[in-house]
Design a protein around this nucleic acid. Structure first.
Length: 610
RNA sequence: GCGCCAAUAGCUCAGCUGGAUAGAGCAACGGCCUUCUAAGCCGUAGGUCAUGGGUUCGAGUCCCCUUUGGCGUACCA
């Protein structure tokens, strides 16, 4: 399975030791020591050290905690040394143990693996200090420092409200932007409003014919929903009146010629839709740094296509249309401008990309767009390259899979499209009902606010736990469930820790004066938690390298599940010794901080109580 | 037809980029609330990693064939 995006932007060489996360530092230190010993042994045995050096040592994590914390498989050295891996492991272990410059820790020979049990007390204390120092920035790094990355997502049409597909798009875009930012990049989130074209005219025309001047105020409908009803109305009318489409096209022409009445109507309806959509963004916590409008950029696209014609990279057909030959990238031919001179989707995107690079010269531009458009982006990037823009190679299509329903595809004709606002409202109602059923309305404070936060947590986690490239099935029943591997489960973990910390303070913060002693965390779960917390930074980096929020989602679930089991089995506030209370409290607070930080990367609202 | 992508438990998804006995959740069954919030915890059951071949010490992971499914291949967006 090859699902990894090859995100082209090159990370900075930030891997200098002084800023390397603690766990990585320990791993690479041990790696160097094992390699040193292998080379020394090879010399003694009269084996070419080149052979040994070229088989670079692999670093892994053992599957079980009894086997230690770091694993070095020795399979690949068997040939050079001409002995079985387990034998070599024993030799190297014994030799290394004679050294007096080893860091704290223990070497374990586990068959063909040489494993290390690390000094967990030191790791726990260093990690606790790092969490304490960096707080909401713990886990952040500067691997993408000074990189300007533009992320385009959402891109709604102004003829209908957002649906489930947009929600996946928005969730991915918002999350990827946050992840890149956490890696130090200078990120600019941009939206592109598809506000021109025949499809926009369809809802306008139907409105003109059938609305009798209805407005969001008079109808009580959100603007985008109101406009959407006329888009649907057009589809009905089109069946009754075959001239409907011609009329819509005539309207588009009039629009392009600047007909005042039509522009006025267009402005009015666009405003309604955009205001409605922005309300949805507000509800889902989606924000942008800048909006682009196709009505502003399509002309630039036209100009650039004509310029390309002059340069000879495109050609004109007899009927007047302008084309590009895609033979170089093993594709066919593609129209860039219609014979009547009007622009196409591709033309507009050419203009938009150029305008963006002029506005904010980026090191990379990531388009978050469904995979059904991969052909479009392949062509777009090629066209821009042909036009001579060197930055064309910095464009990246983050292609995500379709959202389907258990019954199959969403189809507007069959009315199976899941509306974004309806879904969020339904989720909120379910969450509210749950709060009431648990009789936690008072406890929770603002039950309304809490339930929408839970709804959002459920939705975003559901959408982001799947690798973006894969098609996913959105099962409404599952998404409405708040138990198991869900957003609310994670939120609940955070709320429980908060509650525990509140109780501690109410009881007088008894162990505040005691120093945190990492050596007290000896339980298997505690070691696993410390390691996992120490790995958060790597996880954030991996998520950026792969442009994949599901990396964060999986990490969060693992952390929560581990902590959940831990605090169920082992008392924190009622631990037998004050110093142990302190140690466990510190560990819990670390988990809490990481939950908070990770939540913000995948759009899960943090809740102090629920 | 051609191109791109996918296939892991009944269902929805992981699987640290080729390593130790393939993991979770849901659904099913059983156990745990005078003990830091039961939106929780524990246990049982569930797998020929679509099929066949190849690469090598070693394959769910890499390569090829086949099958099935999705998307694309518009002077729609």
């Amino acid at each position: 399975m090859k699902l990894v995006h090859s995100f082209r932007i090159v990370a900075n060489a930030s891997m200098m030791h002084w800023r390397m996360p603690m766990l990585e530092k320990i791993r690479s230190r041990w790696k160097l020591l094992v390699e040193r010993e292998l080379v020394a042994y090879a010399k003694e045995q009269g084996i070419s050290t080149k052979e040994v050096e070229s088989a670079s040592l692999v670093v892994q994590s053992p599957p079980k905690s009894e086997l230690g914390d770091i694993a070095f498989p020795f399979f690949s050295y068997a040939k050079s040394f001409r002995i079985a891996p387990p034998v070599l492991v024993q030799h190297i272990r014994i030799r290394m143990e004679k050294r007096d410059d080893l860091p704290n820790g223990m070497l374990l020979a586990a068959g063909p693996y040489l494993n290390v049990k690390i000094d967990m007390a030191a790791l726990a204390e260093a990690t606790a200090a790092a969490v304490e120092n960096h707080k909401e920035r713990y886990g952040h790094n500067d691997s993408l420092a000074h990189k300007r990355i533009m992320v385009e997502f959402s891109c709604p049409n102004t003829n209908k409200p957002l649906h489930l597909g947009h929600l996946r798009n928005d969730a991915i875009g918002q999350s990827v932007a946050a992840i890149l930012k956490a890696n130090g990049a200078d990120v600019r989130k941009v939206n592109l409003i598809n506000n021109r074209g025949v499809h926009i005219c369809k809802s306008m025309l139907a409105y003109q014919k059938f609305s009798q001047g209805e407005t969001p105020q008079s109808s009580g409908l959100k603007g985008d929903h109101l406009v959407g009803t006329y888009y649907v109305r057009f589809a009905q009318w089109e069946k009754e009146d075959p001239s409907a489409l011609d009329q819509a096209q005539a309207m588009l022409k009039a629009w392009e010629q600047g007909d005042e009445h039509i522009i006025e109507l267009w402005n009015k309806m666009n405003t309604w839709t955009i205001e409605g959509i922005e309300e949805t963004y507000k509800k889902t916590g989606i924000t942008f740094d800048q909006y682009y409008y196709e009505s502003d950029t399509y002309k630039l696209g036209k100009d650039k296509v004509l310029a390309g014609l002059d340069k000879g990279v495109f050609y004109r057909q007899e009927d007047g249309s302008i084309w590009i030959d895609l033979a170089e990238i093993a594709l066919d031919k593609k129209v860039l401008l219609r014979k009547d001179g009007t622009s196409l989707y591709l033309t507009q995107d050419i203009g938009t990309a150029i305008a963006r690079h002029e506005d904010w010269p980026f090191d990379s531009l990531i388009y978050v767009v469904a995979n059904e458009q991969s052909y479009h982006f392949k062509v777009l990037f090629y066209v821009l390259q042909k036009l001579g823009y060197e930055w064309a190679s910095d464009l990246h299509h983050l292609s995500y899979g379709m959202v389907n329903l258990p019954e199959g595809k969403m189809k507007s004709r069959e009315g199976t499209v899941v509306d974004a606002d309806d879904l969020i409202d339904e989720l909120s109602e379910m969450a509210l009902a749950e709060i009431k059923a648990k009789e936690r309305e008072e406890e929770v404070g603002d039950a309304q606010k809490t339930s929408s936060a839970i709804a959002l947590g459920a939705l975003h986690y559901y959408l982001l736990q799947v690798n973006p490239l894969k098609d996913m099935i959105f099962n409404p029943a599952d998404s409405l469930s708040f138990t198991g591997n869900t957003g609310p489960y994670l939120q609940y973990m955070g709320a429980r820790i908060c509650s525990m910390l509140r109780k501690y303070r109410e009881a007088g913060a008894i162990v505040d004066h005691i120093n945190f002693d990492g050596s007290l965390l000896v339980l298997e779960e505690e070691r696993a938690l410390v390691k996992l917390i120490a790995r958060f930074g790597e996880t954030v980096e991996k998520a950026a390298a792969e442009l994949d929020p599901s990396v964060i989602a999986s990490y969060l679930y693992e952390l929560s599940r581990l902590f959940s089991k831990y605090y169920h089995d082992h008392p924190v506030l009622k631990a037998p010794e004050p110093s142990l209370i302190k140690a466990r409290l510190t560990l819990s607070a670390m988990v809490l901080q990481v939950l908070r930080n990770a939540f913000s990367l995948i759009g899960i609202p943090f809740l102090e109580t629920m």
